[in-house]
């Protein structure tokens, strides 16, 4: 099954708000060995001018990966997830994610291409606060491997 080209440019409805918890940031930071006090200690984060502990740069994947289920589970788009490999990933920050943020993801299909029997799906997820403040834009390219 191939991806439906007409999905390029399509934007999905916003996801339900994700409450960024202090313990989740600590857990994620610990899992990647990030020991900087600003990830763990609210006082250390406040000393850097943040309201609460700061998430490591790749933390937003916790939200965006969950949000991408919208696309993966959309039968009309036609992704065979058993053949998906992660191609590219990029984060462009307006500001770091901090504990206490209530974040919404809006997924847009930016590009669908096909090369060498494989298909490439580029998505952009705009992560904003529930008040509409932009926080980070996240691009992800998935490779759907062709059937050999």
């Amino acid at each position: 099954m191939s991806l439906d080209q007409s999905f390029v440019g399509r934007t999905y409805p916003p996801t339900a708000p994700y409450q960024v918890g202090r313990e989740k940031i600590r857990e994620f930071a610990s899992a990647i060995g990030a020991t900087d006090p600003a990830h763990h200690d609210p006082e250390a984060a406040r000393a850097l001018g943040h309201p609460d502990v700061v998430a490591p740069p790749t933390f937003p994947v916790v939200l965006t990966m969950a949000a991408s289920r919208q696309l993966i589970e959309d039968p009309a788009l036609g992704i065979d997830y058993s053949r998906v490999v992660h191609g590219d990933q990029r984060f462009a920050y307006t500001r770091p994610v901090v504990a206490g943020d209530e974040l919404i993801c809006v997924n847009t299909v930016e590009d669908i291409t096909s090369r060498g029997g494989h298909e490439f799906l580029t998505t952009r997820t705009d992560v904003t606060t529930t008040a509409g403040e932009p926080v980070v834009a996240v691009w992800s390219k998935l490779v759907v491997r062709g059937e050999a």
Partner: peptide
């Protein structure tokens, strides 16, 4: 820890 503005990989 909060210095990253843009970060991408393949």
């Amino acid at each position: 820890p909060d210095a990253v503005v843009d970060y991408g990989v393949r």
